[in-house]
Design a protein around this nucleic acid. Structure first.
Length: 256
DNA sequence: AAAGCGTGGGC
DNA sequence: TGCCCAAGCTT
């Protein structure tokens, strides 16, 4: 793949997003955790609000978890907010670990993204978009992580990672790739893999996932739970196990 | 290692 | 309206 052509293309199409204007590892970690399974444009206002309220890892670490969940509300996956705060506690106590996957809620992708953006470490951030770009080009059996690492131009990991992700998100899209606009189409196999058939048909409102979300939202709003009985108990048990709620002295569930 | 974990926008 | 999605991580 012509990496130079990719980087030239990226300079041209680059969109201004607030987290692209910082090299603060804390701010970058906030953005990466928010972006996990959430569209970038929806994250923007949350990111800006969050950094106003919790400008540093120490301030996030010291905040009441209830306030943290309140500011997260609307982004989904509440336990990620919890993990982010726990990561902030770790950082404010021990500093940044050299291996960011030691932080709760940080896996291989997020560690590589933050390390390259903040510190220019030569680590390839392989997300779902990058995975698709590489397998589409080179075949389903390719070792994606090894290929991404081989392509990465040393000393320029940050722009390379962003360019690869942007290519996957806007040109090398899942169902209908726009090969006519691709800056690196030469030598590409152009594989398009049919999505796996969905099996589940259960209504979302019937799932534990929905119940858990409603319980947390109700506690934040100070409103009664919109469910009861065994479903409520199962949701509460799961939330308590994840540390998203605690029981007060009378056994009443509340936010931590 | 498959399954669980939320939400609001777009069509 | 209802269905699908969108920068993963954990157990």
């Amino acid at each position: 793949m012509d990496v130079e052509a990719l980087l030239d293309w990226y300079e041209w199409v680059r969109r201004p997003l607030p987290w692209r204007e910082t090299r603060d590892p804390y701010a970058l970690l906030v953005s990466e955790v928010m972006l996990q399974q959430t569209q970038a444009l929806r994250v923007v206002p949350y990111y800006e609000r969050w950094l106003s309220a919790f400008p540093t890892a120490a301030s996030l670490a010291a905040a009441p978890t209830r306030d943290v969940l309140a500011l997260w509300s609307g982004l989904g996956y509440n336990r990620r907010a919890l993990a982010l705060q726990r990561a902030a506690v770790f950082v404010s106590e021990h500093g940044w670990p050299s291996d960011l996957t030691e932080l709760p809620g940080v896996g291989k992708y997020t560690a590589a993204a933050v390390s390259s953006f903040a510190w220019d470490r030569d680590m390839a951030a392989v997300d779902t978009n990058v995975r698709r770009v590489i397998t589409r080009r080179e075949g389903l059996d390719v070792d994606v992580d090894a290929r991404a690492d081989a392509l990465l131009p040393r000393g320029r990991a940050a722009v390379f990672n962003q360019a690869m992700m942007e290519l996957g998100a806007t040109v090398c899209r899942p169902r209908v790739p726009d090969c006519a606009r691709c800056p690196v189409e030469r030598g590409c196999l152009r594989l398009v893999v049919a999505p796996a058939r969905r099996v589940k048909k259960e209504k979302f409102e019937d799932t534990d996932r929905w119940a858990r979300g409603r319980v947390v939202a109700s506690l934040l709003a100070g409103e009664p739970f919109p469910l009861d009985g065994e479903r409520l108990e199962r949701a509460l048990a799961g939330l308590e196990r994840d540390g998203l709620i605690v029981r007060d002295s009378s056994g009443r569930p509340q936010l931590p």
